[in-house]
Design a protein around this nucleic acid. Structure first.
Length: 255
DNA sequence: ATGGTTGTTGCACAA
């Protein structure tokens, strides 16, 4: 089973590229973030034509997450699970696909450490942990734009961004709290390499200068992580005309 | 130290 995550930075602006990439890569389960669409504007039919069932959660303009699946799509939960303080933004959707409990997440950016949005980011990560505990599946996959670089190997210049949002200790601690639930960052599990990134700022030629961060992650519970055969970031998808500022992450799981 | 770009919406803001 091939599972991918991709922050598309507006599906309206990216539809053609996304469809082309899906045709080339043929994933079974697709986690999208930043669709920037309301549910009634989501192109369900276009994805059905490519063989996918689709579930979308979005209010339009900002945020918006989706799950596409060729292996079934059931028990959809938009927002956090019942009993958890709901998020005003559309940043998480969960469904069962091919026996896996899958979530597509768009973690708040945080902006800067002194911005109220940073506290919101930390609280959001606490609620994500509660959500995953509530779901408590043996076969969990949570993928998306975490807006956190797990460690300094995931940042082009750790000194330049030392302590700033995406690398600060409190948010990294929240990510580790997810690892403590038994979730594994499967790209890192497969590769020790540094300088592999999934996001590059559009400005200053950062992509071509190699200034990026690995902030798009696929976390799997141990029984799934043990079955992972292959994990890459498809850097090529960041090239060419009108790319998203994020590249997709691709993971193959046996069976 | 600053500015740089893209997307959405509206003449700023978020990333």
């Amino acid at each position: 089973m091939r599972i991918v995550t991709w922050n598309v930075n507006s599906l309206r602006a990216r539809q053609e590229r996304v469809e082309e990439w899906l045709t080339d890569v043929a994933p079974d389960v697709v986690l999208l973030q930043e669709t920037k669409l309301a549910d009634d504007a989501f192109p369900t039919l276009a994805f059905e034509a490519l063989g996918y069932s689709a579930a979308h959660y979005g209010h339009g303009q900002w945020n918006g997450v989706a799950i596409l699946s060729k292996v079934g799509l059931d028990d959809v939960v938009a927002n956090f699970a019942e009993g958890i303080e709901p998020d005003p933004d559309a940043r998480i959707i969960t469904a069962t696909c091919g026996g896996l409990r899958v979530s597509s997440v768009y973690v708040p950016n945080g902006r800067s450490l002194d911005d109220p949005h940073y506290e919101y980011k930390l609280s959001w990560l606490d609620r994500l942990r509660a959500h995953l505990q509530h779901e408590s599946s043996e076969a969990t996959v949570v993928g998306g734009d975490f807006n956190i670089a797990p460690d300094d190997r995931d940042v082009w210049d750790p000194a330049k961004v030392n302590g700033a949002t995406h690398v600060s200790q409190p948010e990294r601690n929240r990510l580790h709290a997810l690892f403590d639930l038994g979730l594994v960052d499967v790209f890192r599990d497969q590769h020790d390499a540094d300088r592999v990134y999934s996001w590059w700022d559009y400005r200053r030629g950062d992509f071509h200068q190699g200034r990026g961060m690995r902030i798009d992650l696929i976390l799997c519970s141990a029984p799934v992580a043990q079955q992972v055969e292959f994990a890459i970031v498809d850097r090529n998808a960041r090239k060419g005309k009108q790319p998203s500022d994020h590249a997709p992450v691709v993971v193959d799981v046996a069976g």
